[in-house]
């Protein structure tokens, strides 16, 4: 396990969620599920974060915000769509102001469905995301060493 998947820091943004998934994301930090014992911190600064947890679907007003946060994060980074609204739009898919899930705005690596998504599912998704983060880090290192040789 490389260093980048130990104590990943995550940033959480509520796109147009009803808050149900957001409070379950915050519940992961609290003593019952306690991801802080793995070194995971919820940071507010996109440039400090490795993992982007997005909840809620995307609409015209927040699509730019989601993209801005994603672009500010440094490589390697992983996006986890928490909750069925972030995966596909959920029950609000047919609403006039819903474009769809978060993959309308940014590329998503892990989908964690549920309404509201359970903390166990979020932790599972983060662990899966860590595997993908490792692969991305390995690819970055390989590209760097190839550049050096060239």
């Amino acid at each position: 396990m490389s260093h980048s998947s130990k104590s990943p820091w995550l940033i959480h943004y509520d796109a147009s969620s009803c808050n149900g998934c957001d409070i379950e994301v915050l519940a992961c930090l609290t003593p019952m599920y306690d991801v802080e014992r793995f070194g995971i911190i919820n940071t507010g600064n996109p440039k400090h974060a490795d993992i982007f947890l997005v909840t809620g679907s995307v609409n015209d007003q927040n699509i730019k915000v989601v993209q801005q946060i994603y672009e500010q994060m440094r490589e390697p980074k992983v996006v986890i769509a928490c909750g069925v609204c972030a995966c596909s739009g959920g029950i609000f898919k047919e609403c006039y102001n819903t474009l769809g899930g978060v993959d309308m705005a940014i590329p998503v690596d892990v989908y964690a469905p549920g309404c509201a998504v359970r903390p166990e599912a979020i932790i599972d998704a983060v662990v899966k995301g860590l595997g993908i983060l490792e692969q991305k880090r390995a690819a970055l290192d390989a590209a760097k060493s190839k550049k050096k040789e060239a």
Partner: peptide, 14 residues
Amino acid sequence: IGFVHRGLEKLVEK
């Protein structure tokens, strides 16, 4: 405001 507006009052039609 307006970041969370989904327009669900119109879902009564569906």
